[in-house]
């Protein structure tokens, strides 16, 4: 997918663990891992709101567009 999630880098910059972020935003570690590894298909605005609030960043810091072949819609 041409959308890249920079959660890993931001967590490293904030010196915050995934467990701590999970506790703060109320999203399970499993779901944050899906987001972090780029397997997520969609992100709710409420999740984005919580992530930006706790990480002190903008949505654009979290996600980035990388030009490439369009991803096919999977079954």
């Amino acid at each position: 997918m041409p959308i890249r999630v920079n959660l890993d880098r931001i967590l490293l910059e904030r010196r915050m663990s995934l467990t701590e972020l999970s506790d703060r935003v109320g999203v399970t570690i499993a779901n944050l891992s899906i987001l972090k590894t780029g397997k997520a298909r969609a992100v709710r605005f409420s999740t984005l709101d919580a992530l930006c609030r706790e990480l002190g960043c903008q949505p654009g810091d979290l996600v980035e567009y990388e030009a490439g072949p369009p991803s096919a819609v999977e079954d």
Binding site: I34, K39, A40, R41, A42, V43, R44
Partner: peptide, 8 residues
């Protein structure tokens, strides 16, 4: 369902 599962 799969989409919903992967919506964070």
């Amino acid at each position: 369902r799969r989409e919903a599962e992967l919506t964070i």
